[in-house]
């Protein structure tokens, strides 16, 4: 399978995008093992609950999203924490799910990959989705985003918004949030998990032109 690489992880090293779904990681397998449920739908709900309660969106004391690229690492007591970041250094390096689970903080991509990983460990069809968020009425572009998509027992695909803490968010059918039935619309253009990668090249090219001013 052909998959892209990512070179903006915490220390700028290079990984395959599929490496961000760590289904073999012992720390995450231990977390997944503790989540017990009777059926697939209940597993999904419990994992959503776990992510909402245990992970925080990293805001600094001024209420601005903080940047993991500026995190300091202290190996001698395996602690990583987020520090205040000057504007000129506000680069965000993607975290691996086990890093997110350890520091308990992460932006959309970090928490989405953690959620997808836990779902995949439980053998539930799930993907981390990369896309854009738009205002439904005005179609105004708000920013790039990542979320988790999972398949329920009856085959319905749902969007899991993983940046909502500490109360778990409602699961929203993809048909609702992708088709403009909410005040904001999620427009997906890439899906992946530990064994799949798929992207809508035409759609992403349109966004690239719009965001970066290219033709």
């Amino acid at each position: 399978m052909k998959v892209p690489t990512v070179n903006f992880s915490l220390f700028g090293e290079e990984w395959l995008i599929t490496d961000y779904i760590q289904v073999s990681n012992p720390q995450l397998r231990r977390i997944a093992k503790k989540i017990k449920a009777k059926n697939r739908d209940e597993v999904i709900l419990k994992i959503v609950e776990w992510v909402a309660e245990n992970i925080e969106y990293p805001l600094d004391y001024r209420g601005r999203p903080n940047a993991a690229q500026y995190a300091k690492k202290f190996k001698w007591f395996d602690g990583v924490y987020l520090a205040e970041t000057p504007d000129e250094l506000r680069r965000y390096g993607w975290l691996f799910p086990n890093q997110t689970a350890t520091i308990r903080k992460g932006i959309c991509f970090d928490s989405a990959c953690l959620c997808t990983t836990l779902l995949r460990i439980k053998r539930i069809p799930a993907w981390t989705v990369l896309g854009a968020v738009l205002r439904t009425k005005s179609k105004r572009f708000l920013g790039l985003h990542a979320w988790t998509e999972a398949k329920m027992e009856n085959g319905t695909r749902v969007v899991i918004e993983t940046t909502v803490h500490p109360h778990p968010p409602e699961l929203i059918k993809t048909s609702q949030i992708y088709n403009g039935r909410l005040p904001i619309t999620y427009d997906p253009f890439a899906w992946f998990n530990e064994s799949e990668w798929k992207e809508d090249k035409e759609k992403v090219a349109l966004y690239e032109g719009m965001i970066l001013g290219k033709q």
Partner: peptide, 22 residues
């Protein structure tokens, strides 16, 4: 797995890593 160029990753890299994000 083998490497492939991705427009999506390129775009996310530019927006998130190069600090050009809202």
């Amino acid at each position: 797995n083998s490497e492939e160029y991705s427009f999506t990753i390129n775009l996310f890299g530019k927006v998130f890593y190069e600090g050009n994000f809202s």
